[in-house]
C-alpha cells in the first residue's frame, strides 16, 4: 500500500482550477521529485495534499486512510510532515518552541543543523530566510513521521546547506520515510530523488525513474 496515494486531484481557487487531475503515489522509502514550470500547479497541489486548500475533486489517502476532507492536523497525526514554501516556521515563537510544538527537542534538531542549538532561545522570526528553511527541515527530521511534503526546501540556501538538506532527505528515506519534493533546483532534486514527475497545466505530463540521462530529459521538458 503506498504511503501517499493521490488520485484525480482537482484543486484551485474560486473560478480557477489550477490542478486539473493529479495522480501520484509514494511508496515507503521513496523520494519523488515533483518538477514543473512556474504556474504549472505544483504549489497548489502541495496545498491540497497538505490540507490547507480543500480539494475540489479526487481523493488523497495517507497509508490507506482517506484524508481528502481531513484537517491538516489530522494528516500530521497520520505522519505527514510539511515544509511549506513561504514562511515555513512560526516567526513569533522561539526556535525551541517551534520544535517543542511538534514534540521535538533542540538536541534532535541540532543533529540536522548544529547552529539551531545555540540559537534555540532566539525568536524564529529573527532568523534569516534561509535559516528559517533549515529550521523547518530540521523540525521534520527531528520528528520524521512517515511522509514528508517539502515545497522548495532548498530555496534561499547556500550550496553547502543545500547538500546538508539533501543528506537529511536521503537519511529519512533510508529509514522508510516517503518524500514528495517540489523543487525549482533541478540539480538538487534529481540528486536525491528516485523518481521524477513533471507537471504542466495542472497535471502530470511525464514521469520516470531517475537515471544518468534524466537531467537532460527533464531540462528539455521544462524548457518548452
Amino acid at each position: 500500500m503506498p504511503l501517499l496515494d493521490v488520485q484525480g486531484l482537482v484543486a484551485g481557487y474560486a473560478g480557477a482550477r489550477i490542478v486539473t487531475g493529479l495522480d501520484l503515489a509514494i511508496e515507503p522509502g521513496e523520494v519523488v521529485a515533483l518538477l514543473g514550470r512556474n504556474g504549472a500547479g505544483k504549489s497548489t497541489a502541495v496545498a491540497a495534499i497538505t490540507g490547507t486548500l480543500p480539494a475540489m475533486a479526487g481523493s488523497i489517502a495517507i497509508g490507506g486512510a482517506d484524508v481528502t476532507k481531513a484537517a491538516p492536523s489530522r494528516r500530521f497525526q497520520l505522519g505527514m510532515r510539511t515544509v511549506r514554501q513561504d514562511q515555513p516556521i512560526l516567526r513569533d515563537l522561539t526556535v525551541a518552541e517551534n520544535l517543542r510544538l511538534v514534540g521535538a527537542s533542540k538536541e534532535d534538531a541540532a543533529e540536522g543543523f548544529p547552529f539551531l542549538a545555540e540559537r534555540s532561545s532566539q525568536r524564529a522570526g529573527t532568523l534569516s530566510g534561509g535559516e528559517q528553511k533549515m529550521l523547518a527541515v530540521a523540525r521534520a527530521a527531528a520528528n520524521p513521521g512517515l511522509l514528508w511534503i517539502l515545497d522548495e526546501p532548498s530555496e534561499g540556501l547556500q550550496p553547502k546547506n543545500v547538500d546538508r538538506c539533501a543528506q537529511l532527505i536521503r537519511e529519512a528515506a533510508a529509514r522508510g520515510v516517503g518524500v514528495l519534493l517540489v523543487e525549482q533546483h533541478i540539480g538538487m532534486a534529481l540528486n536525491v530523488a528516485d523518481r521524477w514527475l513533471v507537471m504542466e497545466t495542472g497535471a502530470v505530463i511525464d514521469h520516470g525513474e531517475v537515471s544518468a540521462t534524466t537531467h537532460e530529459t527533464v531540462s528539455r521538458r521544462l524548457a518548452v
Binding site: A71, P72, M80, R84
Partner: peptide, 25 residues
C-alpha cells in the same frame, strides 16, 4: 501548559500551526 505555546502558534499563523498538528479550529 503546552496550551500557551499552542495558543501563540495559532495566533501567529493558524494554517501553519495546523500542519504542525495543532487542532487550531
Amino acid at each position: 501548559t503546552p496550551l500557551g505555546v499552542k495558543v501563540r502558534a495559532v495566533a501567529a499563523d493558524g494554517d501553519l500551526a495546523e500542519t504542525l498538528g495543532v487542532r487550531s479550529r
